[in-house]
Computed example of a mutant assay.
Amino acid sequence: MEGVRVAVEADLPEIRSLVADAYALYTPRIGRVAGPVLSDYAALVQQHAVHVLEDAHKIAGVLVVIEGEHGFLLDNVAVRLDAQGKGFGRRLLEYAETLGQRKGYEVLRLYTNEVMVENLALYGRLGYVETHRIEEDGYRRIYMKKRLV
């Protein structure tokens, strides 16, 4: 997808700042910092799990997808505050779905915190269905999936 690329080490300061800003509004709702803010982005970049969407030579969005024993997991999607409402989040989700299909996965999984009602509504509109709820690492998470084939 145009504008989306695998992140490199030089992107780390911008990635960390963008993610922290994007999730800041959820801190009061959750009662603590959102999980994605605490992720080890240096390690994730080394694993080629982080993708960035650029707009006007700045990172407008961050996507983290992880391949593992449970399949293809969308671990994080975040959009820069001043870039929200421009469809970048949807573009990153579409990119994740396309990437999953190219890698041969039949399902894309994701999770979100139960208080992130805006995200839950968006995922539902895009065809994701809830699979289960769990408390994990002190966060109340809702897991969802979408068939890719």
Rank of each mutant, 00 (worst) to 15 (best):
M1N: 04
V4I: 15
V4G: 06
R5K: 12
A7P: 07
V8L: 06
E9I: 10
A10M: 12
A10F: 13
P13Q: 04
P13K: 07
I15C: 00
L18Y: 00
L18M: 00
L18T: 00
V19K: 00
V19P: 00
V19H: 02
A20H: 05
A22S: 08
T27I: 06
P28M: 12
P28E: 08
R29L: 15
I30E: 01
R32S: 15
R32A: 13
V33N: 05
A34N: 11
A34V: 08
A34S: 14
G35P: 04
P36N: 02
P36D: 01
P36F: 03
V37R: 02
V37C: 09
L38K: 11
L38E: 06
D40C: 08
L44M: 12
Q46V: 12
H48I: 13
A49C: 14
A49N: 09
H51D: 01
V52W: 03
V52C: 14
E54F: 10
D55R: 14
D55Q: 14
H57R: 15
K58D: 13
I59Y: 02
A60M: 07
A60F: 10
G61C: 11
G61E: 06
G61L: 06
L63I: 10
V64P: 06
V64M: 05
V65C: 14
G68P: 10
E69Q: 11
H70V: 14
H70C: 13
G71R: 05
G71W: 04
L73P: 02
L74T: 09
L74D: 01
L74G: 08
N76I: 08
N76G: 07
A78S: 12
R80L: 09
R80T: 05
L81E: 09
Q84C: 04
G85Q: 04
K86T: 10
G87Y: 10
F88G: 12
G89Y: 04
G89C: 09
G89I: 07
G89V: 10
R91Y: 09
L93R: 08
L93K: 11
E94L: 14
A96L: 08
E97S: 07
E97A: 12
E97H: 07
T98Y: 08
L99F: 08
Q101F: 11
Q101S: 12
Q101V: 15
K103I: 07
K103D: 00
Y105P: 04
E106F: 11
E106T: 08
L108K: 00
L110Q: 07
T112K: 06
E114T: 14
E114M: 14
E114V: 13
E114F: 14
M116G: 06
N119K: 06
N119G: 02
N119D: 03
N119E: 05
A121D: 03
A121I: 10
L122Q: 04
L122H: 09
Y123F: 10
Y123P: 00
L126I: 12
L126E: 15
G127R: 12
T131S: 04
H132Q: 04
R133D: 02
R133S: 09
E135A: 14
E135Q: 11
E135N: 09
G138H: 03
G138R: 04
G138F: 01
Y139V: 01
R140V: 08
I142F: 02
I142Y: 05
M144L: 11
K146H: 09
K146T: 06
L148M: 02
